[in-house]
Amino acid sequence: MARFPVIDGHKLPRQGAFILAPNHYSEIDPVIMGRFMWKLGRVPRFLAKASVFRVPVLGAILRWSGQIPVEREGRGRPDAPLKAAQQLVDRELAIIIYPEGTLTRDPDLWPMRGKSGAVRMALTAGVPIIPAAHWGTQQIMARYSKKISFFPRKTIYCKIGDPVDLSDLEGRPLDSATLAEGTRRVMTAIADLLGDLRDEQPPAERWDPAKNNQAETGRFE
């Protein structure tokens, strides 16, 4: 149905826990990135709201497939991110987290301003965060579209980057300044990878939904 060439796939760790942080511009992205990760020899895992695990049948499937439940903070569960991070380490999982939290609002599909969830978990768990970018997915399912098109056959490219250097942020309080700096580095790395795939120069600044009066609906922060 589609071709999935990977550039620098050797940079994806073959063992041990890590976070894969890709760009996000189509609802089918999780399927596409899961396909890439599987091709590179790692089982993709995602974070899911803990309440979903209590749904009959669906919850059983999520537990069987090794997905990680995350309780929402602010409801008497301030240690929710810590518990999720511990599962990541104990089970040596490869987790896909979209730093943007939702589909990019950037008109040209460049990565927009990121949220802090991926960096927070990486620093909490002490695991590397690997940036990645893919391009071509919009040919299968365009942003905001519900229509899927596999024919004619599409080619979707993926490029894996080097781990984002957060070493100088380790051991520091996870305050807004620390998380913002780490997130900035991650989003810059993702944008640079996407620029390589598109053979274009990414914007110097990330699209900011708040400044452009766009509603944000984050999946994990």
Rank of each mutant, 00 (worst) to 15 (best):
D8N: 09
P56A: 15
E27G: 08
Q139H: 11
W64P: 00
M141D: 00
A204R: 10
E181A: 13
I32A: 05
L179K: 03
E27F: 15
E71G: 02
R113G: 02
K159Q: 03
E92R: 12
V6T: 13
L194K: 03
G59C: 11
I190Y: 02
Q138R: 14
R172W: 04
F4R: 09
G114A: 09
T102S: 09
V43P: 00
T155V: 15
A48R: 01
Q15D: 11
I32L: 12
F150H: 15
R63Y: 02
V52A: 13
S167T: 15
K39T: 02
A60H: 14
G126I: 12
M33G: 03
A80M: 11
P107F: 12
Q86H: 05
F46V: 06
V52S: 11
L20V: 13
I95M: 07
E205P: 01
P163C: 11
G101S: 06
P22G: 09
H24F: 13
G9A: 08
P99S: 04
P202Y: 05
L88V: 12
G114T: 05
V89A: 02
R105D: 07
P22D: 01
I190G: 01
L174M: 09
M1D: 08
I96K: 04
L174G: 02
A94T: 10
V52H: 10
G74R: 02
G218V: 14
L194F: 03
P56W: 10
L169T: 09
I160R: 05
L174Q: 07
R42L: 03
T217P: 00
R206S: 02
F18E: 02
L169C: 04
P202A: 12
A17G: 10
Y157H: 14
A204L: 08
A48Y: 08
I148R: 14
R206F: 04
Q214G: 01
M37N: 00
K49P: 01
D196F: 08
D208G: 07
E92H: 09
E221P: 04
I140N: 10
D208L: 12
K146M: 10
G195Q: 05
P13H: 08
D79I: 06
K159C: 01
G9T: 06
A60T: 14
V119E: 01
A118G: 06
G66T: 07
D208F: 05
Q201H: 10
Q87H: 08
G218S: 15
R198W: 14
W110P: 04
L169W: 06
A17L: 15
N212E: 14
G117V: 00
A125E: 12
D106F: 09
Y157A: 08
Y98H: 07
D175E: 12
L82R: 01
A191K: 06
D196I: 07
A210E: 15
